[in-house]
Structures are given as C-alpha cells and as structure tokens.
Amino acid sequence: MESTAVAESTDMDSPSNTPFILSRPHGTVIADGTRTQYDSTLAATKALRDGRATAIVGALPFDPAHPAALITPHVLRHEPGSWNGKSLRVPRIRIGSSLPTEAEHVARVAAALRELRAPDATLAKVVLARSLMLHADERLHPHALLGRLVAGDRGGNGFSVALGAAGSTWSGKHLVGSSPEVLIRRRGDVVSCHPLAGSAPRHNDPESDRRTGEALVVSEKNVREHALVVDALRASLAPLCTELDIPDRPTLTSTPQLWHLGTPVSGRLRDRSVTALDLAVAVHPTPAVCGTPTDAARRLIAELEGGRGFYAGAVGWTDSEGDGEWMVGIRCAEIDAQGTTIVAHAGGGIVAGSDPDDELAETTTKLGTILTGLGVQL
C-alpha cells in the first residue's frame, strides 16, 4: 500500500518529525517529516523510478513477504560526520524475559545442527536469533538510545527508523541500532558492500584479545561461514555489474564487543538506472543474516523462530539520483509506541561445525551493543 502521511506533531522533540536517521563515519543522513509512506518495496521502487518520490528512506523487513516501512520525507538532509543530536536522558531500564529462554535457544541450535549434519543435507548454514525483553521506568525516546549507541561506536554508526509505514500494528514503534555491516552502497556507477560473518568475543586483556582475533582469521569453521556469504553476494551482484573486485581472503574488523571476518566488495554497475534500493532488494537477505540456500534457511527460521519483523532486515536511504546506502538491520532493538518496552535482538550463523553453547554465548555478546547503550548488564 502507498499512502499520504497524516499531519505531523508540532512537538519538535517528537521522533515523528525525524522519522529516519542513519549515522555513519563519513556522514549522517536525516529525514525531516513524512510526505508519502509505503508498506510495499515494489511501490517504493516504482515511485522512485518514475520521479514521484524524491527519495526513499526506512527499513526493509527480514522476510520480503512482510510489510516494509518506507517513506518519502519532506526533506532529506546530509550532514558531515556521525550524528551529534540533542542529548536526551535514558531512563532506568530493567531486564525482563528472554525470548525464547536460553535453554530453548540451545535446543533450536541443536535442531538446526541435526539438519545441517544429515547425510543428505542441502542446508549449509542457517542464522538463528533470540531476543531479550527490557522495560523502561519512563518513556525512552528513540533518539536517546541512538545517541548512546553512536557515542559508544568508534565509527559513530547508528540508526533510528520509525516503523509506522508498515501498518497500524507498527504505528509509533521504532527500530534503533548500531549496525557495523554495510549491505550495499551506490555512488554513481560504483557499488560496494562489506559483509561480516564469522565472529569472536573481544577481551579486556590486550594479549588475549589479540590472540582471539588471530585465531578467528585461521578458524576453518568461521572462514567457511564467511565464504558462504561472499559467494552469495558474488552471485547476486555479478549479473548487475560489469566488474567485481572481491579479495580471496577476509580481513579482521571489530566492534567494541566482537571481532568479525569482513570482505570489502566493490564493482561497477552495468545499468545506472539500478538504484541503491534496487540493489538492497537484490542482495537481501544475505547468508550473514539468513543462511544458505536462502529458501531452505528461511523456512527453518520460520519454523523455529516465527516472524522476525524488521530485525535482520535492512535500514537505509536512496535519493533521486539512485545513490544511497543500506545497512544490515542488526545490533538493534524495537521500541514500542509507549517507549516503555524494548525488545533487543541478536543472532548467529550456524554451520555443521557449530557448538550450541558457543552459539548461545555469541548472541549474549552481540546483545551487549544494545544493553551497553541502555546502561544495563546481563
């Protein structure tokens, strides 16, 4: 569905007046107001292509069958450097329930491993996630959490997206996070991305931290997991590009919580009419958040987890020239319309060599991004 937005609040601190912010090291993109909203990616791409939309910003869901949360803003602003918004207080946050319980997540990983290790297995990888429900004593403004996340990330990464365009169920809700992973970027005819897959926890002790990173680079299990993601991106981008530059081996990258294996990918578009939004739709979901083969992994995720909504989707923008940037929707939380319930999400890639207890520990480490931003610890 495509629709014209309702009148906006006159409260300048209301997140409805700034429905989209994407903070990156090289600059921040901010949407002011909502001109038109779309719950269909197809409708949004069509509006962009025929000139009715001056820009598209928002969030793509994990499952393409789920409604999108995309808008054309009144104004799309580009500011230098990472976001430096108004300082807002984060209220006291209390940890609630795990969804599912930790024991149930371990059981789900074990169930996935039975499929991955079956003699006739076609599934090579599946990403399983869990959530943590948190409660705020007072209303949490999404930009308060965004400010904490941007300040806590050495690259200044962070995003806040209003989800109301996806329909009444999502009215007033926001997705806020600090994703380290570029799904796709387009500048002119240059396409780039930086997939991350394969990870290990950081350590306070510098020597232990260094050894952990070095071990990750030579880990057969993690290198294989990463290769599945790179191979899938190559297959998706090759038909759209005249050339692709993909290094043979991943390199080490990091967040405050985790070491990651990453591969910088770049190419040149065959057709300049292909926009950044088109590219995001073409490559999403990658095996980094879903698995491979995609259809088999998505079916197993639906069976074991149910719906993911916007977690492990994509967050980004595309302008009238077709340029833009879309981030993978991870290290994030959904804030409800009242601002008092926060659901944080984290997942991990499961391959035949995975260990269920290790996978649980990985999700706990990844939840640390949001928990640190909220000022709480597990």
Rank of each mutant, 00 (worst) to 15 (best):
Thr4Leu: 14
Val6Phe: 07
Glu8Trp: 08
Glu8Asn: 09
Ser9Thr: 10
Met12Cys: 09
Pro15Asp: 08
Asn17Cys: 11
Thr18Trp: 03
Ile21Gly: 05
His26Phe: 13
Gly27His: 08
Thr28His: 07
Val29Ser: 06
Ile30Gln: 11
Ile30Glu: 12
Arg35Cys: 06
Gln37Thr: 02
Ser40Val: 00
Ser40Ile: 02
Leu42Cys: 06
Lys46Ala: 15
Ala47Gly: 14
Leu48Phe: 00
Thr54Ala: 15
Ala55Ile: 06
Val57Trp: 04
Gly58Asp: 09
His66Ser: 14
Pro67Lys: 10
Thr72Leu: 01
Val75Cys: 12
Glu79Asn: 05
Glu79Gly: 01
Ser82Pro: 11
Trp83His: 13
Asn84Ala: 14
Asn84Gln: 15
Asn84Arg: 15
Arg94Tyr: 02
Gly96Ile: 03
Glu102Val: 00
Glu102Ser: 08
Arg117Val: 02
Ala118Gln: 03
Pro119Ile: 06
Thr122Phe: 07
Thr122Arg: 15
Thr122Tyr: 07
Ala124Asn: 12
Met133Ser: 15
His135Thr: 14
Asp137Asn: 13
Asp137Ile: 04
Arg139His: 07
His141Leu: 06
Ala144Trp: 08
Leu149Met: 12
Gly152Cys: 13
Phe159Val: 13
Phe159Ile: 08
Val161Asn: 07
Val182Thr: 15
Leu183Arg: 06
Arg187Lys: 14
Asp189Pro: 09
Asp189Glu: 14
Asp189Ala: 12
Ser192Asp: 15
Ser192Cys: 14
Pro195Ala: 10
Ala197Tyr: 04
Gly198Tyr: 06
Ser199Lys: 10
Glu207Pro: 03
Asp209Ser: 11
Arg211Ser: 13
Glu214Ile: 03
Val217Lys: 09
Ser219Phe: 03
Val230Gly: 01
Val230Met: 01
Val230Tyr: 01
Ala232Tyr: 12
Ala235Gly: 00
Leu237Ser: 11
Thr242Lys: 12
Thr251Tyr: 11
Leu258Lys: 03
Trp259Ile: 06
Trp259Pro: 04
Pro264Leu: 03
Arg268Pro: 02
Val274Leu: 12
Val274Trp: 02
Leu277Phe: 03
Thr286Ala: 01
Asp295Cys: 03
Ala296Gly: 04
Leu300Lys: 09
Gly309Asn: 08
Gly313Leu: 12
Asp319Gln: 03
Gly322Asn: 10
Asp323Pro: 01
Asp323Ala: 05
Gly324Lys: 11
Gly329Met: 02
Arg331Ser: 11
Cys332Asn: 11
Ala333Pro: 02
Ala333Trp: 04
Glu334Phe: 00
Ile335Asn: 04
Asp336Tyr: 04
Gly339Cys: 04
Val343Met: 12
Ala346Phe: 00
Gly348Lys: 07
Val351Glu: 00
Gly353Leu: 08
Gly353Asp: 15
Pro356Gly: 05
Asp357Cys: 04
Ala361Ser: 15
Ala361Leu: 09
Glu362Met: 01
Glu362Asp: 00
Val376Ala: 03
Leu378Ser: 07
